[in-house]
C-alpha cells in the first residue's frame, strides 16, 4: 500500500541516476566550504583576540558584529555583502560590483562563520587555566611561544567538535549559492528538480553525498582530537 501510494513521487533508481550528476558539482561545494572555513577561522581568531584583550572600541564593535551575524538570517547577510558592500565601495571609487559571484559568496559564509567561531575560540582559549600561562612564563617562554605551544593546542582540542559541527552545517546550508546562480551540489539537486520535477530523488541523492562527507569529516576530527590529546599528555 505504501509503495502504491508513493508511486510517481519517489523512484529509488532515480536517486542512483542523480548521484553522478550531483558529484560533478562536488568541487564547488568543497571549495566553498574550505575557503569559507579558512576565512572564518582567521577572522574568528582575530575577533576572539579583540574580545579577550578587550581592545577599547573594537570590543564593542565585535560584540555588535557577532550579535548581528548570529541573530539574522544568512540571506540578509548575503544581501549586505553582495549588494551593500559594492555600493559602499563605489562611493569611494572602487568598483567591485561585477566581481565573480563566488567571491561574494565566500565572503558571506566566511564572515558569518567568523562570528560563530569567534565565540567558540574565545571560550576555548579562556578555558585554558591561567596557571598554565603563568607556568609557561616562569620557565622562560615568550608570550607568542606560550600561545602557540601551550594555549593553542588545548584550545583547538576544546573547540574542535563545535568547529566540526559548523563546517557540516555550512556544507548543507549552501542554499544561497543557487540563489546567485552558483551550482553546487544542492544547487544541482534543485536544477535537476526544476528540469525533471523529480526533486525528491535529487535531494535524497545530495543527502547521501553529504552523509559520506560528514562521516569523513568526523573521522578527521576524531583523529586530530586523538593526536592532540596524545601530544598534550605526552608533553
Amino acid at each position: 500500500m505504501w509503495g502504491e501510494a508513493m508511486e510517481g513521487f519517489f523512484n529509488i533508481s532515480l536517486v542512483v541516476e542523480a548521484l553522478p550528476q550531483l558529484l560533478t558539482r562536488l568541487h564547488i561545494t568543497l571549495f566553498l566550504v574550505v575557503a569559507a572555513t579558512i576565512l572564518g577561522i582567521v577572522a574568528g581568531i582575530i575577533i576572539a583576540l579583540l574580545r579577550i584583550y578587550r581592545i577599547p572600541g573594537f570590543n564593542q564593535i565585535s560584540l555588535l558584529y557577532i550579535s548581528f551575524m548570529r541573530g539574522t538570517p544568512i540571506i540578509v547577510q548575503m544581501f549586505i555583502v553582495y549588494y551593500g558592500l559594492p555600493a559602499i565601495l563605489s562611493s569611494v571609487g572602487i568598483n567591485i560590483n561585477r566581481w565573480d559571484k563566488m567571491i561574494f559568496l565566500i565572503l558571506t559564509y566566511g564572515l558569518n562563520m567568523a562570528a560563530f567561531l569567534a565565540e567558540i575560540i574565545r571560550a576555548a582559549i579562556v578555558s585554558v587555566p591561567i596557571g598554565q600561562t603563568e607556568a609557561a612564563y616562569a620557565v622562560g617562554m615568550t608570550r607568542l611561544q606560550t600561545f602557540w605551544r601551550i594555549i593553542a593546542p588545548q584550545a583547538v582540542l576544546m573547540g574542535l567538535p563545535s568547529i566540526g559541527i559548523n563546517i557540516v552545517g555550512l556544507l548543507q546550508d549552501s542554499s544561497i549559492a543557487f540563489l546567485l546562480g552558483i551550482v553546487d551540489v544542492m544547487g544541482k539537486a534543485r536544477a535537476i528538480g526544476a528540469n525533471t520535477y523529480h526533486s525528491l530523488e535529487a535531494y535524497v541523492g545530495a543527502a547521501v553525498i553529504f552523509l559520506v562527507i560528514t562521516l569523513l569529516l568526523e573521522k578527521v576530527c576524531a583523529t586530530i582530537e586523538r593526536r592532540l590529546t596524545m601530544k598534550i599528555i605526552g608533553d
Partner: peptide, 10 residues
C-alpha cells in the same frame, strides 16, 4: 534557473 520551460538548467 528553476522555471521550466522559461528558464532552467539542462
Amino acid at each position: 534557473n528553476g522555471f521550466k520551460p522559461y528558464c532552467y538548467l539542462d
